[in-house]
């Protein structure tokens, strides 16, 4: 039985006057129903573009999905015709975006926007779609839902808007929900609420979630599987527990080290990753992370690492990932000497 979603070697490039931006360069993963995959990385790592590629929302002609497959129940999304994609979007796969204020149309009432997909995909009448929209708004925890449906976006608070966006995305009961940094634009207190809401909705509807975030704290609570991206490539992929407790890629170590933790003593202060994200036009040779990696060796500069299986479906793209002693916290000096 084919997986719900199977992505193989997805590559999306942007063709600009300054050169080709390799925003996504060979990403593969899969998704089962009811599962949550977290895609983690810095800005510019390609995580959002991956999501947009799946939704076929990449702006042509500047951007193009140059290769790869994305099989939804065996059907390749990337090869669908425009009208097929339109049927698919919003109905079987839905997406919510980072900033709920700008992502909602300011001149239409919220109820109408939430119900719009029902009108398009399920052929509901305006009245019926709004009725259902009210039910959905209630489901996501918005009080006075019937009154609220008649409000405009600017009359909602930030957290409520994001709830409305979630309701909007779930309207047609999609199999896959992609959430692009859903909590980044919200207050910290609201963030937890929204995450809780999403997990509950997932429980209720059985949808799979692809959660895009740069915040590992979010990931820890919510994800079944984690994919870490860097410079358009995936550098680590595996079950959540594996990646958190037995990470195998120096970039992941860096990310984990830079999470502020209340239980870590002051001596082990925050360790930022030195340097800055690479240009996606002039990607560093070999392993893209090598300029910032404390463990970089000659091979890292010349050869692009492929994904090495560290057991249990845990993959890491580092030349040394296979070595058992290459674990988080190993002293760079000692490692290089050996």
């Amino acid at each position: 039985m084919p997986k719900l979603l199977e992505v193989r070697e997805l590559a999306t490039h942007f063709f600009t006057r300054d050169g080709i931006v390799r925003a996504v360069d060979g990403v593969s993963f899969s998704l089962d129903p009811g599962q949550t995959l977290a895609v983690v990385g810095e800005s510019g790592s390609g995580k959002s573009v991956t999501a947009l590629s799946l939704m076929r929302l990449v702006a042509e002609p500047a951007g193009r999905i140059v290769s790869g497959e994305a099989l939804y129940n065996g059907v390749d999304i990337l090869k669908m015709s425009d009208s097929q994609v339109r049927e698919f979007r919003g109905d079987r796969m839905a997406m919510i975006f980072q900033d709920p204020m700008t992502s909602l149309n300011p001149v239409y009432k919220v109820g109408r926007q939430v119900g719009e997909t029902l009108m398009i995909h399920k052929g509901m009448s305006r009245k019926d779609s709004i009725k259902r929209a009210i039910e959905l708004l209630e489901m996501v925890g918005i009080p006075n839902a019937s009154e609220r449906a008649g409000n405009y976006p600017h009359q909602f608070s930030g957290g409520m808007r994001q709830r409305a966006m979630i309701a909007m995305a779930l309207a047609c009961d999609p199999d896959i929900l992609i959430a692009d940094e859903p909590t980044t634009a919200l207050d910290v207190t609201i963030q937890a609420q929204i995450l809780e809401l999403m997990t509950e909705m997932q429980r209720r509807t059985g949808a799979a979630i692809i959660m895009i975030t740069h915040d590992l704290g979010v990931v820890a609570d919510v994800a079944d599987e984690v994919m870490v991206m860097y410079a358009g490539k995936q550098v680590e992929y595996g079950k959540s527990a594996e990646v958190f407790y037995r990470p195998k890629h120096p970039y992941t170590w860096g990310l984990l080290d830079s999470i502020p933790r209340h239980d870590v003593s002051e001596k082990d202060a925050l360790l930022p990753i030195t340097g800055h994200p690479p240009s996606l036009i002039n990607v560093p040779s070999g392993c893209a992370f090598h300029p910032r990696c404390p463990y970089a060796a000659d091979i890292c500069r010349t050869q692009v690492p492929s994904l090495i299986d560290c057991g249990n479906g845990h993959l890491a793209a580092c030349h040394f990932a296979g070595a058992r002693e290459f674990i988080r916290g190993v002293d760079p000096a000692k490692w290089k000497a050996a």
């Binding site: 942007f14 600009t16 300054d18 931006v21 925003a23 800005s43 510019g44 959002s48 573009v49 947009l52 929302l57 990449v58 702006a59 951007g63 994200p277 690479p278 240009s279 996606l280 036009i281 002039n282």
Partner: peptide, 12 residues
Amino acid sequence: MTTAEMTTGKVA
């Protein structure tokens, strides 16, 4: 039409 994320990575 969409605002896709892009790092042009221009060197200063």
